[in-house]
Amino acid sequence: MQGTLTIMDDPDLKDERLAAQVQGGDSEAFGTLMARYQPKLARYGSRFLARSDDVEDIVQDIFVNVYRNIKGFDSSQRFSPWIYRIAHNAFVNELRRKSRTPIRIPDFDLLALHTPSGERADDLSEHESLARLVESGLAGIDPKYREVLILYFMEELSYREIADVLRIPVATVGVRLLRAKNALKKEYANRNISL
C-alpha cells in the first residue's frame, strides 16, 4: 500500500496514465487526480463565478461527473482540457441558474473566420504581470471574457487546450483573449487604476 501511494504521489506520473488506471477500476488513482485538480478547479470556479461560497460543492459535483464519465475519456488525449470542459459546463450552468437573464446570447465571434494568431499574444514578462493584474479586475468583466483570461493566465492552458475546453476554434481563442484584455483595461480605467 505504501509503495502504491508513492507511485500515486509521483508528480511525474501523468494525469492521462492515472485516468487510464481509474478506467481500469483503481479508485485510489482517482484520489490522486482529485488531489491534483481540486485546488485548480476551486480556483477556476471562484474566479469564474466571482464568488467562493458554494464552489466546493460544485467542485465535488464535478468530480462525481468526472468519475461517472471517465470511460468516455480517450487516454491518448490530454486530460486537463477534458476535466476543465466538465468544470466549464458545471460553472456555466451555475451562472445560468443564478442569472436573471438565463437566455443564451449567440456568440458572433464563432461565426467569423479569424486569422490564426500566434500561441502567445504577449511576451512572458507581460504574461506574468498581466496575470497579476487580471486577478484584481476579473469580477467586473463579462464571464465570457473572464473565463478565457482565467484559463490562459491563471490555469496556463494553451490556446489549443482552451479551444477544447470552450469548444471554439483556436483562432477565436486569440480574438476573445484580445477582447478580454481590452475589457480588462476598460475596467481598470473605470476604477482609475493606471497600468
Binding site: Q60, F63, V64, N69, K71, G72
Partner: peptide, 25 residues
Amino acid sequence: QSATEETVLERIRSGEITMRPGSFF
C-alpha cells in the same frame, strides 16, 4: 480539499457513484 476528496472517494467505495460503461459512450 481533503474533505471533498474523502467524500467523493467514500461515495465511490460505497458504490453510490459508479462509472458509466465504455459501451455507453
